[in-house]
Design a protein around this nucleic acid. Structure first.
Lengths: 118, 118
DNA sequence: CAGCATCCCCACTGATACTG
DNA sequence: CAGTATCAGTGGGGATGCTG
């Protein structure tokens, strides 16, 4: 993820952090609780392992998530939201609710009901 | 802006809408009040006219903003947030506040003070 | 299971020039 | 002032295969 060199406002910073295609969904999953790599992969539909790891590393760099690594075999990783990540999740949460509102306005209640979101 | 064909959750929808590099700043400006094209261009540092118009058109398609066009000369356009756009702005607003918090944690109070955000 | 390395494509971005 | 058209660079995203 290419970040800008300079930020003219804090908004751009948060936006750059969350811009990646899978970032919001990753945060959404991690907010439910810590996940292993494979756990995340299973819970996120359509993501490739490479993209998942790439996005996780970017979130790590920004201090949004924290990683614990087990030592023995089988290998076990554990990703968790940091405090900063939990705050960022609030924005993600709002995006979700806005998405729901938009879908309702667009008459897609059926879709939402199927997902158990209505 | 390439939107996905299918959305597995509403979050992805909102994310796709706001993904563009300049979208949040545009919403931020429009939330202050309606703007003409040139007005927006002047208020957004570094944006090219092409990108501005492109993003505006995408926001129009999604029903986030509304455009009025004057008939006479000199030409006068007017962009405003729709009700949906105002709701989306709330998410943008949260992103801004999170950006501020992050910058404070990172010890960039000086930057924020310069911008009058602290 | 966790993670890295390669290769490739296309969408996003941007500069520039032109029209009403 | 508002908006379109064209061309080019690049980095984000994805498929696949390899290592500890």
């Amino acid at each position: 993820m290419k970040m800008r060199n300079e930020y003219t406002c804090p908004l751009e910073m948060t936006h750059d952090i969350i811009r990646g295609k899978w970032k919001p969904i990753i945060l959404w999953q991690l907010n439910k609780g810590s996940h292993s790599l494979s756990g995340l992969k299973k819970s996120i539909n359509g993501i490739s392992q490479k993209m998942l790891i790439q996005h996780l590393n970017e979130l790590l760099e920004c201090g949004i998530i924290h990683k614990s690594k087990g030592e023995g075999y089988p290998l076990k990783s554990d990703y968790v939201l940091t405090e900063r990540g939990k705050r960022l999740f609030e924005a993600v949460s709002i995006m979700q609710s806005i998405g729901i509102e938009m879908m309702i306005e667009d008459g897609r209640q059926d879709f939402l009901r199927d997902k158990g979101l209505l």
